[in-house]
Amino acid sequence: MKSSVIVFPGSNCDRDVAVVLEKLQFKNSMIWHKETELPRSDLIVIPGGFSYGDYLRSGAVAAKSNILSEVIRAANKGALILGICNGFQILIECGLLKGALLRNSKLKFISKDILVKVLSNKNKFFNKYKDGEVLKLNIAHNEGNYFTDKKHLDELEDNNLIPLKYCDKKGNLNNECNPNGSINNIAGIFNKDKNILGMMPHPERMSDKFLTNEDGLGLFLSLMN
């Protein structure tokens, strides 16, 4: 598997993702945002961080960078695209995913471990998980409050395009376990073809049992399938 990790000024999870990908024998390249060409990649990761200092809106400036037009082209050809945290914000700002990520409902930057439930495993990203499995992942964001209109929300729910929702230990979905106010507890969404995934939690931070746990590793293992 060939992968590319896009690096912007202000990206800070790029190397964490690269470590996981290389551990799993992905042939990985780090691609600076000014590049105008992407190497052929089965997987493109847009990592977390604060691209361009979150100026204007999180991800808004990165979405107009040189390399993003190449990412969009690859996405339309069916490459797998994974946007984590700021990467999710960038995917939304460039139009590859619909909706918006608003400021967290309690107006605070949240950095903590949370629980999410895998709601759909019949796809390229979660096939190594069981349906309904509860994962402990980490979030660290200020704008993770997912919002979209009723029509799109119905489309997401009806077509299994929401693979991850914030939940409690038993897998229940409720307001108490929703850290940022996201509509329907949404933690991650797919595009229609399920080759593009945007998610606020960081799977790369939970991919080494000596550091944290390996709840996030399954996502990268799934991608190799």
Binding site: L56, A60, K64, E93, G99, A100, F147, T148
Partner: peptide, 8 residues
């Protein structure tokens, strides 16, 4: 194209 996100 840039200054506003018309969804919100």
């Amino acid at each position: 194209k840039l200054l506003a996100n018309q969804i919100i």
